[in-house]
Amino acid sequence: MSDIPPTDPAIRARGLIKRFGDLAAVDGIDLDVPRGEIFAILGPNGAGKTTLIRMLATLLTPDGGEATVLGHDLTADPQAVRGAIALTGQFASLDEDLTGRENLILLARLWGFSRRDARARAEALLADFDLADAATRQVKAYSGGMRRRLDIAASLIVTPGVLFLDEPTTGLDPTARQKVWRLIRQLAGSGVTILLTTQYLEEADQLARRIAVVDHGRKIAEGTSRELKAQVGEGFLSVTLADASRLDEAADLLAAQLGARPGRNAEDSRLTVRAGSAAEANAALAALIAAGIEPSDFSMGAPSLEEVFFALTGGPGAGREATE
């Protein structure tokens, strides 16, 4: 990726707001996405990711705030914004009855390609996206990964200045996900600014140069993945218990030892807690063992993005689902 100097950003948003009735789905978000970068919006279900992207792609009118995309004002000149962007929504937006090739030709014709050029463009994209063999099959019969690739291809008929990808790999198997990641990197390499949303910390970590963490319609943190990790604290002790029933007891003990409440991951009986130094972590572990609580695994290190995320959003116990 080239180091483009931070001149005017590809996307600049100030105080964007979108309300649905009483609910502020997006509640005053500022965003500066530099040109040519991959920028990730990370957040749990219902955080407002889709709403934010739909506003930036001119599909929703903001209730407050302002934004420019590649210099075009969102509300004053939406048609210019549409000419500069492409959107791959959270759910495939394809005509299921048509074949893969016909879907691409349809869009190419809408962009103004001649019949012949539209066909050529469709063929080239199908080849690039590993879909040549399925070109004449109806999209109905595509697998999730194929749909996703076709959906992204459909956004690249005309190379956009900014590409919005709403959860590009949700529901894909690891191989299909790797494929999509490779495509995204290649696209960014060719100079396209990419704003993607994801619920996967790994995805944001892998792809994006900068990450904004969003929850309840607000941006709660932003930075490179390293900055985010530093913001939460450098040293983390992670302990997995052999006996999950003693999780509470262990959490109390660690809290007493290290002066911070551990975050917990109930599925694999893991506790994660900030530790000032290796010596402190060591002492805490010793205390656990002395109390007869056997760790089956432990590690000390920089926090994973997952841990950062839980620390910022209030832990996995504070999920959003219940309030929806």
Partner: peptide, 18 residues
């Protein structure tokens, strides 16, 4: 040389063509 990297932007078509 992926096709998607190529920037071809035809003239916008008229409403009738759309």
């Amino acid at each position: 040389d992926p096709a998607f990297a190529r920037t071809t932007r035809p003239a916008p078509p008229g409403p009738f063509a759309n």
